[in-house]
Write a protein that binds this DNA or RNA. Structure first.
Lengths: 218, 218
DNA sequence: GTCTATATTGCGATAGAC
DNA sequence: GTCTATCGCAATATAGAC
C-alpha cells in the first residue's frame, strides 16, 4: 500500500481536490486539507501540479478531455451520434457535484481570482465551443447544415445542454438526473438543434432517426 | 426634489439596490448603503418592500415581468415574433450587470441563503419556462410544432439564450453586447429552435421570415 | 501593530521498480 | 546498484484577521 501506480496517486489527488473544492470553494480549500484526505505529503501535489492553480487547471482539463473525445476525428462521419455522445458526457459532467463546485468557485471568486474564471472557461466550455465550430463548419461545407454563424450556433448548442436544469443544480434546487433522464434531455437538444420544433421532416442523406420526438404513450 | 412620485421613489430604490447587490453580493449589501445612494430614510425601503429579501424579490419580479410581456395573450398569434421579442428582452436583462450581480449573489450564497436561490429561480427563469411551456403546448395543438416534451424544449430554448456568452459574462470575461449583436444572437436562437440547422426549409402557415440564416456578404 | 493561517519550498529518508 | 515516487517535517513568506 505504500506505493500506488503513478496515475492512481494522481487521480487520488484529483478526486480529493475536487471534493474539497466542491465543499469549500477555491480559496477556502487548503492543500493540507486535500492531502489529509488521502495521506502522504504536500510535496506530491506540488511536484505533480506545480501549485494550487495547476490542480484546478488539471481538474477542468481532464474532464473536458473526456467530454470532447466524441467530437474527435470521426465525428463528422455521423454528426448526430457524435453530438449525442458529446451531450451525454457534457450534461453528466457539467451537472456533477464536483464540477458544479468548481464552477461555483470560479463564479464566486471571479473578482479576486480572475485567472480562475479564465482558466475554467478556456479549458472547459471554450474548448468545447471551438471544437463544435470546426464540426459545424464541416457540416456546412458538405451540405448537412446551413448555418450563418457557426460560433453563435455552437454557443447556442452548448446552452441547450446547460439548460435551466444546470441553473437549478447550480442554485442547489435540483438533484442529479439519472442516465435515462440525461439521455432524454440530450436527444431532445440534439434533435431541436438539427431539425427544430416546427416539424418539417428534414431531407438529408441518412434517414432521420427521429427517436422520441413524439411522445410514446407507453 | 423633496417629494418624488411614488413610483419614482420605488424605482430609485430598486436601481440603487441593484447597484449595491451587483457590487457586493447579497449578504454584504447593507440597507444603509442602498439608502445612502439616494438619500432619504430606511423606512421607505421597509415600508415598500418589507425587508431586504423583499427588495430582492421585487427586483427579480419586475425584470421578469418585463421580459415576459411578449409571451402574453397574443403571443400564439405570431409565435416567432413573440419568441424574438422575448429573447431580446431576456438576453438584455440576463446579461446586464445588475442581473448578473443578483445571479452571482444567488449562486455564491446558495448554501447560506437557500431562499435567495429559490426566489431567484422561481420568480425569474422558472416563470419564463412555465409561460413558454404553455405557448409550446398551444403550438403543438395547432400543428405549428411537434414537441414530445414541452418542458424540456422550453428549458432548452432558454438555455440557448443564456448561451456560453452568459457564462462568460458571469465569469467576468466579456463585455456587454450592443443591441445589434443581441438581435443577431436572438434571431439565431429562435430560428434554430424553430427550424434546426440541417436546412430543411419549413412549411408552416406564415411565410418563413428567414432573416439572416445565411451570411449576408455586406 | 500582532497573530494566525496557509501557500509554497527545502531537505533527508524510504520503498519499490528497473 | 540507480531512479523515481512517496513521505514527513520544518522553514519561509505572505495575506488577512484582529
Amino acid at each position: 500500500m505504500k506505493t500506488q501506480k503513478p496515475n492512481e496517486r494522481r487521480n487520488a489527488i484529483l478526486h480529493a481536490a475536487a471534493d474539497e473544492f466542491f465543499e469549500h470553494g477555491y480559496e477556502a480549500t487548503s492543500i493540507d486539507a486535500i492531502i489529509q484526505r488521502i495521506g502522504g505529503s504536500k510535496r506530491d501535489i506540488y511536484s505533480e501540479f506545480g501549485n494550487k492553480e495547476g490542480l484546478f487547471v488539471a481538474l477542468i482539463s481532464e474532464w473536458a478531455d473526456y467530454a470532447l473525445t466524441p467530437l474527435g476525428e470521426s465525428a463528422s462521419l455521423n454528426l448526430r451520434e457524435a453530438l449525442l455522445e458529446f451531450g451525454r458526457r457534457f450534461v453528466s459532467i457539467s451537472t456533477s457535484p464536483a464540477m458544479l463546485g468548481l464552477y461555483r468557485a470560479a463564479v464566486s471568486e471571479a473578482r479576486r481570482f480572475p485567472d480562475l474564471a479564465r482558466i475554467f472557461y478556456e479549458r472547459g466550455p471554450g474548448r468545447g465551443e471551438s471544437r463544435l465550430v470546426e464540426l459545424l463548419d464541416a457540416a456546412n461545407k458538405n451540405g448537412e447544415a446551413q448555418i450563418a454563424d457557426c460560433a453563435i450556433a455552437a454557443s447556442h448548442f452548448m446552452g441547450m445542454f446547460r439548460d435551466n436544469f444546470h441553473m437549478r443544480r447550480l442554485l442547489g434546487l435540483a438533484t442529479p438526473l439519472n442516465s435515462k433522464q440525461v439521455d432524454r434531455a440530450v436527444i431532445s437538444a440534439v434533435d431541436i438543434f438539427l431539425f427544430g420544433v416546427s416539424g418539417s421532416p428534414k431531407q438529408s442523406k441518412e434517414p432521420p432517426p427521429r427517436a422520441s420526438r413524439r411522445p410514446r404513450h407507453e
